[in-house]
Amino acid sequence: MRFVPSAEFRAMPWKNGLGVTREVALGGDAATFDWRVSIATVGASGPFSAFPGIDRTIAVLKGEGMLLNVDGARHELLAAGEPFSFAGEAKVHADCIGGETTDLNIMTRRASFAHVMTRRRPAEPFTFTGPAGLTFLICNGPFRLEIAGKDHAAQPLDAVCDIAEGDRLRIEPQGQADLFQITVGQAPH
């Protein structure tokens, strides 16, 4: 388990060449990853890259949100809304609502891995215990984190990576803030 400030995330160009994603964590190599957690800033409307065989979940972190057209069906993603899941091979077009949007993404290779992303809105300090699988926490606001006896002043977009089952950390919100939990595990067979 490790605290990773957002300034340390690796920037990568989008597969479709229309933007840049900051990689929080990667399982496997960049070309044929097993799973990838990332944060992207969408500055303009446009298509999403296709990722055949990949399951995706996205959540809005900053901005007013976006309207996604996924294989002809419209879905509204808002900053206060819940994460949205879709198939990586779907034809997806995003229309930004009111300008630039920053979103959180998890992608897993369907044949081998599965994931769950949840938005938490803690009002009080609590102790987080890692569930089965590999877990990542993404801060969308300020938090005080205690990891293995060391304090961290987490800012928006900072992360706690590689939380294993049974790992524990103390989390204290510093005002109103969201905390995103992403857990990756083996795909059910």
Rank of each mutant, 00 (worst) to 15 (best):
44 A>V: 11
8 E>H: 14
154 A>K: 05
60 V>P: 09
69 N>C: 13
103 D>I: 03
175 G>V: 03
131 P>F: 00
94 A>S: 14
52 P>M: 03
21 T>I: 07
135 T>W: 01
89 E>P: 00
120 R>M: 14
184 V>W: 11
161 C>Y: 00
108 T>A: 05
159 A>D: 09
162 D>A: 13
143 F>P: 08
182 I>H: 08
37 V>D: 02
174 Q>G: 07
83 P>E: 01
130 G>H: 03
137 L>D: 06
49 S>F: 09
31 A>G: 12
175 G>H: 10
78 L>H: 13
81 G>L: 05
142 P>R: 14
109 R>W: 00
33 F>R: 02
160 V>H: 11
27 G>W: 00
122 P>N: 07
65 G>Y: 04
168 R>L: 09
145 L>R: 13
179 L>T: 01
146 E>Q: 15
16 N>V: 07
7 A>Y: 06
117 M>E: 07
34 D>T: 02
117 M>T: 06
121 R>F: 06
148 A>V: 10
13 P>R: 08
106 I>A: 03
23 E>P: 11
114 A>I: 02
73 A>G: 06
71 D>P: 05
185 G>V: 00
129 T>P: 07
68 L>W: 04
173 P>M: 04
159 A>H: 05
138 I>Y: 01
107 M>K: 05
53 G>Y: 01
1 M>E: 08
142 P>Y: 00
42 V>G: 13
118 T>P: 10
150 K>C: 11
54 I>R: 00
12 M>K: 12
172 E>V: 09
107 M>S: 10
97 I>Y: 12
120 R>Y: 00
44 A>N: 13
22 R>F: 12
66 M>T: 00
56 R>E: 07
27 G>E: 03
17 G>V: 07
114 A>Q: 15
177 A>L: 04
180 F>C: 04
43 G>H: 11
141 G>P: 01
59 A>T: 08
2 R>T: 12
107 M>F: 05
24 V>A: 09
131 P>W: 00
82 E>C: 05
59 A>V: 10
183 T>P: 03
164 A>L: 10
149 G>K: 05
112 S>V: 10
76 E>A: 14
137 L>R: 02
149 G>E: 04
135 T>G: 07
36 R>L: 06
51 F>N: 07
88 G>K: 02
107 M>E: 07
136 F>N: 05
182 I>C: 11
14 W>K: 11
